[in-house]
Design a protein around this nucleic acid. Sequence first.
RNA 1: GGAGCGGUGGCUGAGUGGUCUAAAGCGACGGUUUGCUAAACCGUUGUAGGGUAAAACCUACCGGAGGUUCGAAUCCUCUCCGCUCCGCCA
Length: 423
Amino acid sequence: MLDIRLIRENPDRVVERLKTRGKGDEASVARILEVDGLRREVIVEVEKLKAERNAISKEIGGRKSRGEAADDLLAGMKEKSDRIAELDGKQAELDERQRDLLLQVPNLPHADCPLGLDAAANPVVKTFGEKAGFDFEPLDHVALVEKLGLVDFKAGATLSGSGFFVFRGAGARLERALLNFLLDLHTREHGYTEIFPPFLVRESCMVGTGQLPKFREDMYHLEGEDLFLAPTAEVPVTNLHREEILAREQLPIKYAAYTPCFRREAGSAGRDNRGMIRVHQFDKVELVKIVEPEKSYQELEILRSHAERVLELLGLHYRTIELCSGDMGFGAAKCYDIEVWAAGSKSYLEVSSCSNFEDFQARRMNLRYKTEDKKNVFCHTLNGSGTALPRLFVALVENGQQADGSIRLPAVLHSYFGAGEIR
RNA sequence: GGAGCGGUGGCUGAGUGGUCUAAAGCGACGGUUUGCUAAACCGUUGUAGGGUAAAACCUACCGGAGGUUCGAAUCCUCUCCGCUCCGCCA
């Protein structure tokens, strides 16, 4: 959520920055300012009336306690109170309208963010390794996992519908091995505190991290209960500190959490619907940071390096791209995507998205810290996948395949998996 | 699911309709005194919004939302959260 004062004081700058996203969001700035103006007019009037009422009530109290009559003061008070109630109602309505509008406005892209309207304008900022070479035609993961019995797509469809799958045998074991590897890496070597949160969260948490109110149709919602299935651990983990004022010494806070992620993927029917690339439930280890504002961009670079390290340890070729203004997610001010090469699919798969939200989420969830000079200031929040699993699984399977159909695993996984290859 | 008890400032905790401008204590911060520390004494001490050139100042906030009243921390209704016990349960 943007600061209403920023919009009030620098509307032109806000409009100019929102335009770089290319989604027409700047149109709401004028409406927000209009509501804000009306709102402040009402506030000035109602507070003046309240001050008068308070003064008269106090005088009435004083007289009554001395046993004096106060009828002259009581006259007209009822009308005054009714008018106050009326204006209070009007103000509440305007407050709500203003908040509704503000919650729909995306974050302002950072000044460094490359300008552009879609993925074509995203610069590659780093590449690691090279595409694996094969002296045979590599298969894609669907063929490989079915041949080896690692994943059962049909069973997933039977149980839950399309977009769900079942790991079996060595496939399930590899998934579990990867989770352990990732959590160990981030907690032991990168200094994150492990969190295992609830997978169901309140609406207020979904608003806090920015999924709601705008993206409701992408979320699973429980019938009869006001709970949502978390689409990412970002939601429960970042909201761990909602409505808090943290001590400066607590920062930076660094959390790593495994959760399954639930996404309806409404509107993307037919896209990537083969295999495990785009599914309704998948596993992910997420990294979340809560930091001081001055340090958030430096923390973003570190966060990104932690996600990249996963692929480097696994020996997987990847590229990191910087998202341009028009391709960034709703809450991000700056964002990197990390894409791993999958030799069978012959494509780069997004396995991590590392974002700095600045104070966008913190303002929504009222997450602050006390500065050295005792001011309460919104924290900056960041998160990045470290990493998403099914696509990592795909890359390992496709890049590790051998001519006989077996799969060779990177050395760091051997102890986790209990073997060096799957056959 | 049932019954009961609670929710007040950074913390403890008083407060059953009118100077509540929320007592008192603790803590924290500043000061005086002091060889140093401690003690003692004095003072300060929340959040948000509005307002102003800046101030002054004003408003709201006692879990949340409504209501009663000229006036609500206090009375009423609903609700959320916590704790205890019972039932059920992996």
